[in-house]
Design a binder for these strands. Structure first.
Ligand code: FES
Ligand code: FES
Lengths: 164, 164
DNA sequence: AAATAACCGACTGATTTAGTCAAGTAATTA
DNA sequence: TAATTACTTGACTAAATCAGTCGGTTATTT
């Protein structure tokens, strides 16, 4: 079992995609500004997500990423697996060979924990998450913040071109 | 959420203690040989377990460690916490302040996962584990192996003193 | 006194994380 | 077709963490 910022970022970014990608692809720059995740790091993560067939990319201006299937068909465990963070809690990878070929004392315990975690995470789809009202309210807040940032940026550009 | 060899070793060692410590303290050397865990590393782990009041130590010859309370009163989550591997899956430590002070999109998800994991692990006591028949059979196997090793060792010592 | 076993702190090599950087490739649009 | 935009790829890095070692100290028993 491993759950670090990487897996959390991946799920967050995918949820952002599910929330905003209803029409047309979303650029990583957008996700980066809304979710405060480094653009370069997102690129790394989306390379893996694409290899696992969870997203499709569209190049060129106006391009970006879209989910490769319906958001009700993508669950959280899928995403975590895709970025190489397993939900397996055993040391042996489920093989029961910890103690030079033999099974260690606690193998069954970690195995049970693994199935527990996997059941939970694979039972939650992006579609379900988008329906939760706390997710929707946070999403709205983030949209507002991004809008404000854009206006600031535009104002700055206006000043710059005025001065230049 | 973090679960590495450290937490697994700690639980394994504590279970070994529950299984063998019915009468008298058990030395770390014993646990080390039965469970194939480095003695020095065990010392490190037991320092933490002692600080968390899960074990009591007895110094001197014949000394070792014993559980500081009944094995039905110690659960797996206790042990994992003691060696600094938390069962918390959030990034913010449950505070909801991931995104510069505000709550991130996926906070609730990780929070739910955390309670899920904690419920599971805190519901399993060492006492329960010692009752499981697969644990008992592995325990027997390990006892046999240790016995065999000791005999080998004694035989070697016998030869050595014969030659010296 | 000698043996035993816990205690302590510093140290290490290897791995992993989170993140950056720079060069490249593909698709639009003017 | 040229310029632009945005994804793609791979190499690189600083910092953190892990698993484990080592040497020495203290307490207890025989
Ligand atoms: S965790 Fe599977 S054998 Fe130890
Ligand atoms: S995990 Fe709690 S706010 Fe992000």
């Amino acid at each position: 079992m491993k759950l670090t910022t990487r897996g959390r970022y991946a799920v967050t970014a995918m949820l952002d995609l599910a929330l905003h990608g209803k029409e047309g692809p979303i650029s990583l720059a957008d996700i980066s500004s809304r979710q405060d995740i480094s653009l370069s790091y997102l690129e790394q993560l989306f390379a893996k997500l694409r290899k696992s067939n969870l997203v499709k990319s569209v190049r060129g201006p106006g391009g970006g990423y879209r989910l490769s299937r319906d958001d009700t068909k993508i669950n959280v465990a899928d995403i975590i697996d895709a970025v190489n963070e397993s939900t397996d809690a055993t040391n042996c990878g489920g093989k029961g060979i910890c103690q030079n070929g033999e099974m260690c004392l606690t193998h069954h315990l970690w195995n049970d924990l693994s199935t527990q975690i996997h059941l939970f995470l694979s039972g939650i789809t992006l579609g379900q998450l988008t329906q939760k009202e706390h997710v929707q309210s946070i999403c709205e807040r983030q949209d507002m913040e991004q809008l404000a940032q854009n206006e600031e940026r535009l104002a700055l550009i206006g000043l710059d071109s005025g001065n230049a």
